[in-house]
Design a protein around this nucleic acid. Structure first.
Length: 255
DNA sequence: ATGGCAAATATCATTTGA
């Protein structure tokens, strides 16, 4: 089973890229973040034609998340991690027996800022929601753009990033708390290697110089850890004309 | 003193991203 996470940075700007990738790779589940559109603006037709269904939570201009699946998406839940959140940042569904949760964690803008404080609260709420609705014994994956570099191997310049937004102790503690509940960072279960980046900046042409971050993650429970085959970052998709600034990341599970 | 890019909005400039 292949479960992919991809921050597409606008589904309308990336429609052809996403459909071509989907057709070529044929994953079971494709989780998308940063749709940047309302539900009525989502390009459903191309997904239909490839034999996929789309469950989504849209929002004008910002955020927006979707679960694209080959099989029926059961028990779709939106409004995560809490019902009153005005941002479209979370959706969950059960596909082929696996509970798939995908999130777009708030960016935080700058360490110690008001947005950063809200990011910490959002992560606390995600933890509360998870603990209230799920068990570490479930076959469950939380994937998405966490906007946190788990440790210094996940940063291109640790000295420059020291205690900066995405790399602060407080953010890393929130991520660790999720792991302590009963999740494993799937890529780290496979490799200790540095430079396993999933994002490269547009501003300074980061991809060309491999100045990237690993911020797109799959966190999996023990039952899925036992099925873990590999995690594959498709850096090729970051190249060419008009890519997203994030690469698709695939969780490969044994049947 | 803080550039450089990309996307959305209805904009000819601002916000957000990470």
């Amino acid at each position: 089973m292949q479960i992919v996470t991809w921050n597409v940075n606008s589904i309308r700007a990336r429609e052809n890229r996403v459909l071509n990738w989907l057709d070529q790779h044929q994953p079971d589940v494709l989780c998308l973040q940063e749709l940047k559109c309302r539900e009525e603006e989502f390009p459903f037709d191309g997904f239909d034609q490839l034999g996929y269904e789309v469950s989504l939570l849209g929002q004008k201009s910002y955020n927006g998340v979707a679960i694209v699946s080959r099989s029926f998406a059961d028990d779709v839940e939106t409004g995560l991690p809490w019902a009153e959140d005005s941002d479209a940042r979370g959706i969950a569904a059960t596909v082929d027996g696996v509970r798939v949760v995908t999130v777009y964690v708030p960016n935080g803008q700058q360490a110690q800022s008001e947005r950063w404080e809200q990011k910490l609260v959002w992560l606390d709420k995600l933890h509360e929601w998870l603990a209230a609705t799920s068990s570490p014994e479930d076959e469950l994956v939380i994937c998405g753009d966490f906007n946190i570099a788990a440790d210094d191997r996940d940063l291109f310049d640790p000295a420059m990033w020291h205690e900066q937004n995405l790399a602060t102790t407080e953010e890393r503690e929130r991520l660790q708390a999720l792991l302590d509940w009963g999740l494993s960072d799937a890529l780290r279960a496979k490799t200790d290697a540095a430079e396993q980046y999933t994002w490269w900046d547009f501003l300074t042409d980061g991809f060309v110089f491999n100045r990237g971050l690993r911020i797109d993650l799959h966190l999996i429970t023990q039952p899925l850890l036992e099925r873990l085959e590999d995690v594959v970052i498709d850096t090729e998709e970051r190249g060419g004309e008009k890519p997203s600034d994030h690469a698709p990341v695939s969780l490969m599970l044994r049947d």
